[in-house]
Design a protein around this nucleic acid. Structure first.
Length: 484
RNA sequence: GUCCCCUUCGUCUAGCCCGGCCCAGGACACCGCCCUUUCACGGCGGCGACACCGGUUCAAAUCCGGUAGGGGACGCCA
């Protein structure tokens, strides 16, 4: 007798309006939150926000060996930094062991699961043999119909999977996916030591938490049919599934450390803004026409799981940088100043007694792609140059440079300096009066004030630095050039 | 090996479901020009793709079949 496990999937909208949407992000705490996980979390979060549903954070720590508290903290830190707030949880799977046991027993009692006394050595041997002979390495069913129950002998519990037919589901992202049941073997749901296994816990949790839509990485596609069989054996309603494609490195291999940073927190430390990472991540695999920039609210409003692409995408730092630059350029200077502070301290720069940091930020917003770059460019405001770009200075005649310093000092001292336009006007005046070119005047002064040539506009620097400090720096540069 | 999935510019993608508006649009990157006192910002322009082969059709990126390539899964990991 063959059975067809083809789910009739209702139109998405409809099923959501009937019962409240509940989604979850379920990382295993064996490392930090990486960008792939963050994107999965983001899609869950967006769908929940978009539909007014509930977003649950669940920590899958059934692997006691590899799970750590540090990882849990790191994941929470990443989530918080990105602003992906959850409505319920974090729920720890390790708290539900009794519950899993209960359901294992139910299945056992119903004859839908059985005890298997095969040792892992035996299974490994069979698996290797099957692989070698080119067969699918599935469990051969040795204990499936075993009648005896040897006392005191260790055993695992296996799910008695349907033998014939197919198991299929309509993935929200990938469409209908069908698996022949003969591909699926009797999976272990409880280990020799009595602990439950992943595929079983996931089903119990998702069912008892009343998850309506499971959004996860597409490396779980192959787990889905066995989970569906479990749902049905347990009499639980089967949720909808949405498998999001993976993120790849530039060589199109699964993104990993060797491609560069993968940790969300690492991006924070490299000077990225959370809204930039979020915007980048949401556009990786998802789109809304030709739109590129999405505020938090816009992405919530426009997000539609059906618009998520089916294929994997390559992580591209250049585009992330562009977005980051965009958000820095348009960001609130006060907030940016606050975010910049730690980067300044790590450079041993103190803003005390120096120019107002907010004013400094304003002169740098169009010139920095990251907060790290901004910090680098901000240093000169607080630490007067201890050396000058000689190569740049060499482009000008020594006497000419000294003359410029003299005239500029004179001009700047003669009038109240309170705005960028005032300074700019003064410099233009000098040029017309002396018949100099702007480049001849501006560049030496820029070097005098910042030490180099890559800096904000002269007017911006002068006003931000203050007239007193400006004159002091020009005077120092004057001495330096004279002594040369 | 078996099963599952994927395939539009270098990269992210629009278009594909409901063939003609597509000799394929946008964005990042790259190149050039303009703006400009440096560095940037900005503006304008350029480069550049429907994996391949068949079929259906008056017409295919869009539908069908096959091929190739890539990825994933096959654990008493999650």
């Amino acid at each position: 007798m063959t059975s067809i496990y083809l789910l009739q999937v209702e139109p998405f909208q409809r099923s959501c309006s009937m019962s409240e949407l509940r989604v979850r992000f379920a990382p295993s705490p064996t490392g930090y939150l990486h960008v792939g996980g963050a994107r999965t979390a983001l899609f869950n979060w967006l769908l929940a926000k978009n539909k007014g549903g509930t977003f649950i954070l669940r920590i899958e720590d059934t692997d006691v060996e590899r799970s750590t508290k540090e990882s849990v903290d790191a994941i929470l830190e990443g989530m918080k930094w990105l602003g992906l707030d959850w409505d319920e949880g974090p729920v720890y799977q390790s708290d539900s062991f009794p519950l899993y046991k209960e359901y294992v027993q139910k299945l056992l009692d119903a004859g839908k699961a059985y005890k298997c006394y095969c040792t892992s050595e035996e299974l490994d041997a069979k698996r290797n043999l099957a692989m070698q002979e080119g067969r699918k390495p599935k469990y051969d069913g040795t204990c499936r119909d075993r009648g005896d129950h040897p006392d005191g002998q260790p055993y695992v519990v296996r799910f008695r999977a349907p033998q014939g037919g197919v198991t299929a589901f309509d993935d929200l992202i990938k469409g209908v996916i069908t698996f022949p049941n003969e591909e699926l073997d009797d999976l272990i749901i409880q280990r020799t030591d009595g602990t439950p296994t992943y595929n079983f816990c996931v089903v119990i949790d998702d069912a008892t938490m009343r998850i309506t839509t499971v959004i996860r990485g597409d490396d779980h596609v192959n787990n889905t049919p066995r989970q569906i069989q479990l749902y049905e054996a347990l009499g639980f309603p089967v949720p909808q599934f949405a498998h999001v494609p993976m993120i790849l490195g530039s060589d199109k291999a699964r993104l990993s450390k060797r491609h560069g940073a993968t940790s969300v927190i690492a991006y924070r430390d490299m000077g990225f803004l959370p809204e930039a990472l979020l915007n980048y991540l949401v556009r990786l695999g998802w789109s809304n026409g030709d739109d590129e920039i999405f505020s938090r609210d816009e992405m919530i409003q426009k997000f539609d799981i059906h618009n998520v692409g089916r294929s994997a995408s390559v992580f591209n730092t250049e585009k992330l940088l562009w977005l980051n630059a965009h958000y820095i350029k348009n960001g609130d200077p006060e907030r940016l100043a606050g975010l910049l502070l730690p980067h300044l301290s790590s450079r041993e720069v103190t803003t005390l007694g120096g120019p107002d940091l907010m004013a400094v930020v304003k002169t740098l917003q169009e010139r920095a792609q990251t907060l790290v770059e901004m910090a680098d460019r901000a240093v000169f405001y607080y630490n007067a140059p201890d050396s000058y770009d000689d190569a740049a200075l060499a482009k000008f005649d020594k006497e000419q440079v000294l003359a410029v310093f003299e005239v500029v000092t004179e001009k700047l001292s003669s009038a109240p300096i309170d705005a960028v336009v005032v300074v700019d006007a003064l410099f233009k005046e000098i040029c017309t009066e002396k018949g100099w070119k702007m480049g001849q005047v501006g560049q030496p002064v820029r070097i005098a004030l910042s030490g180099g040539t890559q800096a904000p506009g002269i007017g911006e620097i002068v006003v931000t630095l203050g007239i007193k400090e400006t004159l002091k720096r020009i005077s120092s540069a004057r001495e330096y050039v004279t002594a040369k």
